[in-house]
Write a protein that binds this DNA or RNA. Sequence first.
DNA 1: TCTGCGGTCTCCCGCCGGGAGAGGGTCAAG
DNA 2: CTTGACCCTCTCCCGGCGGGAGACCGCAGA
Lengths: 266, 266
Amino acid sequence: MRGGLTIGEFAQLTHLSVRTLRRYHESGLLEPATVDPSTGYRYYSTGQIPSAQVIHRLRELDVPLAEVGKILATDDPGVRAELIAGHLDRLQTSLDRTRAAVNSLQRLLRPEPGELPVAVRSEPARLVAAITDVVELGNVLEWYDDAMDELDSVGGAGLAPPGGHYDNELFAAGHGRVLVYRVIAEPPTYGRVRPVKLPAVELAATVHHGAHDDIDVTYGRLGAWVVEHALAVAGPVHETYVVGPRDNPDPASWRTEIGWPVFRVA
Amino acid sequence: MRGGLTIGEFAQLTHLSVRTLRRYHESGLLEPATVDPSTGYRYYSTGQIPSAQVIHRLRELDVPLAEVGKILATDDPGVRAELIAGHLDRLQTSLDRTRAAVNSLQRLLRPEPGELPVAVRSEPARLVAAITDVVELGNVLEWYDDAMDELDSVGGAGLAPPGGHYDNELFAAGHGRVLVYRVIAEPPTYGRVRPVKLPAVELAATVHHGAHDDIDVTYGRLGAWVVEHALAVAGPVHETYVVGPRDNPDPASWRTEIGWPVFRVA
DNA sequence: TCTGCGGTCTCCCGCCGGGAGAGGGTCAAG
DNA sequence: CTTGACCCTCTCCCGGCGGGAGACCGCAGA
């Protein structure tokens, strides 16, 4: 009587490859039921088939092996469900991103529009209620929603559209300083909210219409305009949410003013 | 006057990283407008921004760089649209797979069923009309649909449910021999269809209910049963599509008999 | 008991797209 | 001319898997 199923037999039963099973052993995800100490042969039991299949499913969902390990190591089914739910959330966001990319690609590939209306204007210094932090590029949307909620709870909605400043490093390095603000007569200090004085700048600005799926296209066109008018970029991007998701659920109605602080070159 | 935008400036305008732009140059996807021959500095023009953004979008859709190159190299917008449509198709399939994995995972994690009803029966040798080929694991579904269409066109639907044999290597190595058949009184030779004599086997069989999302779970349970009854696997998997997508569009109604040829061990 | 063959062992490399850092040259403002 | 930001190339690393080499093991037939 042998100790159990050989790795090849087990592979056949689970539709995993022999190599993959060895890797799962190596990384501690799926220990063979017994390992012959003299030959090193791995032997599996039929009871391990369900575990192998759970791992298989999680991998199909692109859950990293390390995360799979964490999920399997948890006995508490509640925590486990939570971890999995987290991954499904991330899956959903990546799906949304894919959809956005498809839409934007289709727009990019059809002929396209005329001149981009850009205006350069002097933005005066302003005292506003702001929340600021260094944020990962992937978490910006989430962070923004949180921060804007907190900002709204302090009041001042409706006076002027809210806005945000996004450090250029955010896109270059994947993380950078972000600041969102609301215009309030007497900016309070509350929670993460602080009164902040935004400096005066020359702003080359245009308006992006619609969802933010392809706002970077408008950025590109604005940037081209700036360069072609012998200006140079000097500071974080300014966005003003003239009409946003909080004003109207229909993305087609959204209006976002985007602006780059500029100065004239030689 | 400089030759154009430095790589850093261009990166800022396109929201791509400097390193990524260098790689795109290296792989010929996006040549800088000019390269200073003495210093090696890359200089870009504002006109290259749209190209960079198209590349960016395609990469967001996980199109490999080589494919992106092909797409950009094509001037014919029709061909281009075709290539992109192909990728969107693949995206759709991968999305379907993801959905299936999510469903199956949820089923895997909740408590679970009783005994699996397995029967061992003697399958007599049969002469059938079959199409067979060596197929990549990823293309099996597509191949199956094609082959079954061709088989149907030869006739014989309705006499007995169709079936398929899947070499075990298919799952181990990612490619293997697949055979689909229909029972016809006098199997013809037509197109890819050939008369094939299926050998007699002892078959350990059970029925999988519902969509094939988690048919491998049933395979695992069948395999466990086989092992625990001191049997061993000897040949390709047999599937019989008792009720399939061509009989009833509702996956819940599908019935697939799966069987492993077995022989008794010591 | 020997032999042969297929299964299994370990170890190293390649693939992809990108990140990170080293070590050195270049540009432009003060 | 110095300084500091920018740019150059080169090399290594990551995750998850496949491929292959070279050696050992298990088992059946002679």
